[in-house]
């Protein structure tokens, strides 16, 4: 980020940086959020930011396949998955507050450390990459790690799945910022995987609740081998 401040940046670049900053902010917001409904809305917003940044990148670089990527993002991550998640929590009636394994301030502090680490790690990659979005690689990596952290610190199954989906979001973002996205086939495949994974996990939610009368994954410690 330091070198982008010195060099003159075109408008599209500044917009992309704004989107990236928004994604990081939303990542922190999700990490700190206790309520599942808000969590889903934040996830939807993150999808929106991703969509916006992809469209801007496509427009400014003339990479037409990025429009398709953006379309998939819009359909799947801004509309599809949040809708499925909303339905799920209505059916499961789990709108309660989320219990975290670590308290929120500690989690946030760890998150800051992660951001520092990922910026450090991403610096050499950014210098190698020649894309317009190269400055955002650090942010993408930080978002990935934050989602991972969220997955670790949550004790209920639904937030974990949301964290998983958010991780997929930031991986996609990393891919677009480093190399203008993966080949179309791979992207389509991943999109389908995420959808199928969501469906399977939804089935699992019901199964888990039936077995343990709860969606708390701490219940599953009982089934380990002695």
């Amino acid at each position: 980020m330091t070198e982008t401040a010195i060099l003159p940046i075109p408008l599209s670049g500044q917009l992309i940086n704004l989107c990236a900053a928004l994604m990081l902010l939303l990542g922190f917001a999700m990490l700190a959020q206790r309520r599942i409904l808000t969590l889903i809305n934040l996830f939807m917003l993150q999808g929106g930011a991703l969509f916006a940044s992809t469209v801007i990148a496509a427009h400014s670089t003339g990479q037409h396949h990025l429009y398709w990527s953006a379309a998939i993002t819009l359909l799947l991550k801004v509309i599809g998955l949040p809708w499925i998640l909303h339905r799920l929590i209505r059916r499961l009636s789990v709108k309660w507050d989320v219990e975290t394994l670590l308290n929120i301030p500690t989690t946030m502090l760890i998150g800051i450390v992660l951001v520092v680490i990922s910026f450090n790690v991403a610096q050499p990659i950014s210098q190698l990459s020649g894309t317009i979005m190269r400055a955002t690689i650090g942010i993408a990596l930080a978002c990935t790690l934050l989602s991972f952290l969220m997955m670790i610190t949550r004790s209920k199954a639904v937030p974990q799945v949301i964290a998983f989906l958010a991780m997929e979001n930031s991986l996609f973002f990393a891919a677009t910022s480093a190399t203008y996205g993966m080949p179309m086939v791979v992207e389509l495949g991943i999109a389908l995987d995420v959808l199928v994974g969501m469906v399977i996990l939804g089935v699992f939610f019901f199964q888990i609740r039936e077995q343990f009368d709860s969606l708390d994954i701490r219940q599953m410690e009982k089934i380990k081998e002695e």
Partner: peptide
Amino acid sequence: QHGRIAVYLM
């Protein structure tokens, strides 16, 4: 092998 998902993720 704790059997806790959070630990495995960790």
